[in-house]
Each structure stands twice: as structure tokens, then as C-alpha cells.
Computed example of a mutant assay.
Amino acid sequence: MKAKLMFILILVVVGKVASAEVSNDEMNKANSPLTPMAAVNFHDYIQSSVFGTDETLNTAYLRIVSPMMIGGLPQLMRMTIPYMSAAPETPTSTTSGIGDVSIFDIFLLSKVDGVEFGVGPLLVMPTASKDETGAGKWQAGAAGIVMSPQSWGMLGALITYQHDFAGDSDRPTQNIATAQPFLLWNLPQGIYLRSTGIMFFNWETGDYNIPLGAGIGKVWKFEGGTTMNLFGEPQWTAAHEGIYAPNFQTFVGLNFQFPLH
């Protein structure tokens, strides 16, 4: 309930101070992970129904995006800092703490027929404050992104893979892939519909989770070029294997993008 009230309050306040009109292209850029702008994102997955426990779990993310130019190659570096509540060995209780920080560095490749591509390395660091909120392993892998902006919205996908290479030998091996499809449909006045559920696959244990999302968001543009993107997206699990995967969750987010000068 508090999250819903905060969501409505932000909508009311921002609607009064934002002035610039938002074009279809600007809406696509506000939702694309390949937009070369500095960004700060606040994301929260509220897992109100979870397989294997009656508890409500929660994972909040602070994501910071920084564009760079190294050796003449444009790049986007994204760092993700999670704070989560997790179900420990006893499924009737939870514990909370900082999770494992991850970074990926995306090299922006040339467009092909308007389709945008990016690929680069990924690193996960064992920064969790508690065993239950992290893997206890150094992990490395890669991330790939493809986005196809359209006149009506956008299609795309973000795919990652990571495997451990060091860390606590007593902790389980990490061999994980994720796939996040992007389907966005733009409406008038900066409003859009969205579906961006992240599919999770643990190749070591055979566990997986495939959610389907259907949500709504709104983009505002401020004088000077800064954009703000506020959204909410309920997600239902269509297929899964393993415990502690969400059966139903709500993905809420607040994204800021800042123009480069």
C-alpha cells in the first residue's frame, strides 16, 4: 500500500513541474538500455507470492549507468547494487542485507537497419553482507543487448551469462543465464505499456523461472534534456522449477537520464 501511495504522489508532483513534450523517439530512448546517457535507476521487485515460502520477499536495486569513450569506442558501464530480503533455511522467516554487486561494460556497435546492438564483459563481486543474500563467489561472463526502436514503440532483449571462477569453495557453483525481453507500446502524453519479465536459468541445478509481465509507465522530459521514467509492472510466473522463485511479483521503477554536455 505504501508503495502504491508513493507511486501516485510522484505522478502528481512530477506532472506539475515537467513541461516539455515527449516524442515517440524520446520515449524509446527513455526505455532503452543502450541510450548513451548517464542514468540513475531505482528498481524494486516486490515478491508477494513465492514458491516454497509464505513470506513476502523483496529485492531493490540501485543501478548507475555511465557512458564512456575508450580507445575511440563508445561504451556504457552499468553497476547494480542490490538490497534484498531472502528466505533462509527456515521458510517461515526472512533475512535482509546487501547482495552481490554486478558490473557490465557494453560496447555500442554500429546500427544495422536501425537496430541497435551492444555486447561486453560482466563481473559479479561477492559483496553480500549475509550468506543468504549472495553467492559467495566471484563470477565473470558477458552481456548482450539488441534493441529495435519502432514508430509504435520498441522491441529488444538483454541477455547475460555468468560463471564463478573464485570464492568460497563450500558455496554452490554458479552457472547462470538470464534473458529479459523488451516489449513497449507507446501511447499519447508520454504513457506507454510494457512487458519486461526477466527469465532466469540456473544450468548447474536445473532451476528456472519464466515470468510474463504487463505494466504501464510514463515518461517526463524536463528543461535541459533530463528525462524521468516511472513505471509499475505486475509479473506472473508462467513456468518454473525450484523453490524461492516468485509466483507473483510487482516490478516498480524510477529511472532518470541526464544529457551529456
Rank of each mutant, 00 (worst) to 15 (best):
M6Q: 01
I8E: 08
I8F: 01
I10R: 00
V12I: 14
V13S: 04
V13R: 04
G15V: 07
V17P: 07
S19W: 09
S19I: 09
E21G: 11
V22I: 15
S23N: 05
D25I: 10
D25N: 13
A30T: 06
N31G: 15
S32H: 08
P33W: 02
M37R: 03
M37E: 01
F42Y: 08
D44R: 11
Y45W: 10
Y45S: 00
Q47V: 00
T53S: 02
D54R: 00
L57Y: 00
L57T: 00
L62M: 09
R63Y: 06
V65R: 02
M69R: 15
G71N: 12
G71L: 14
L73F: 06
Q75T: 12
L76I: 15
R78P: 06
M79S: 14
I81N: 11
P82N: 08
Y83C: 07
M84N: 06
S93R: 13
S93M: 11
T94H: 05
T94Q: 12
D100C: 14
D100A: 08
V101D: 03
S102F: 05
I106Y: 03
V112E: 08
D113F: 10
D113V: 13
V115A: 07
V124I: 11
T127K: 15
A128H: 03
S129R: 03
S129Q: 04
T133V: 10
T133C: 02
T133N: 00
G134R: 02
G134I: 07
G136K: 07
G136C: 09
A140G: 14
A143P: 04
A143V: 14
I145W: 00
I145D: 01
V146H: 00
S148G: 08
S151N: 15
W152L: 14
G156M: 05
G156N: 03
A157S: 04
I159S: 14
T160C: 12
Q162C: 06
H163D: 09
D164T: 02
G167V: 07
D168A: 13
D170Q: 13
Q174M: 11
N175H: 04
T178H: 03
T178S: 02
A179E: 07
P181F: 12
F182W: 02
W185E: 00
W185C: 01
L187K: 03
P188I: 05
G190F: 05
I191L: 12
M199D: 01
F200D: 11
E204Y: 12
T205K: 04
Y208F: 15
P211V: 07
G215R: 09
I216W: 13
G217T: 13
W220F: 15
K221R: 14
E223A: 15
T226M: 11
Q235K: 11
Q235S: 10
W236V: 10
G242W: 06
G242V: 08
I243S: 11
A245C: 08
N247A: 13
Q249E: 03
Q249R: 08
T250S: 02
T250H: 05
F251N: 06
V252I: 12
G253L: 02
L254I: 15
L254S: 10
N255M: 04
F256C: 07
L260D: 05
